[in-house]
Amino acid sequence: MTVPAPLTGVIPPVCTPLTPDREVDVPSLVRLVDHLVTGGVDALFVLGTTSEAAYLTDAQRRQVVETVVGHVGGQLPVLAGAIDMSTPRVLDHVRAVTAAGAEAVVATAPFYSRTHPAEIARHYRLLADRSPVPVFAYDIPATVHTKLPADVVLRLAADKVIAGLKDSSGDLAGFRTVVTGARADSALTGFTTLTGSELIIDSALALGADGAVPGLANVDPAGYVRLDRLCRAGDWDRARAEQERLCALFDMIAVGDPARMGTGSSALGAFKAALHLRGIIDCAATAEPQVPLSEAEVERVGKYLAAAGLL
Rank of each mutant, 00 (worst) to 15 (best):
M1L: 14
L7F: 03
T8Y: 02
P13K: 04
T19V: 04
T19Y: 05
T19S: 06
D21E: 15
V24C: 09
R31Y: 03
H35F: 07
T38I: 08
G48W: 03
A53W: 06
Y55D: 10
R61F: 02
Q63M: 01
V65P: 05
V69R: 04
P77D: 07
L79N: 03
A82W: 01
M85G: 07
S86R: 08
R89I: 06
V90P: 01
R95E: 05
V97C: 04
V106C: 02
A107K: 08
F111D: 08
S113G: 14
H116C: 02
A118I: 01
E119H: 09
Y124D: 02
L126S: 11
L127V: 02
D129W: 01
S131N: 03
V135P: 00
A137I: 01
D139I: 01
I140A: 11
L148G: 05
L148M: 13
V153I: 10
L156S: 04
A163S: 12
A163L: 10
A173V: 12
A173S: 12
T177Y: 06
T180N: 14
G181K: 05
T192C: 00
T193F: 14
D202E: 15
A206D: 07
A212N: 07
G215S: 14
D220V: 06
R226M: 11
R226E: 15
R232L: 05
C247F: 10
L249H: 11
D251V: 09
A254G: 14
V255S: 08
A270T: 08
A273I: 03
I281N: 12
A284F: 05
P292M: 04
S294Y: 11
R300I: 10
A306L: 11
A307G: 10
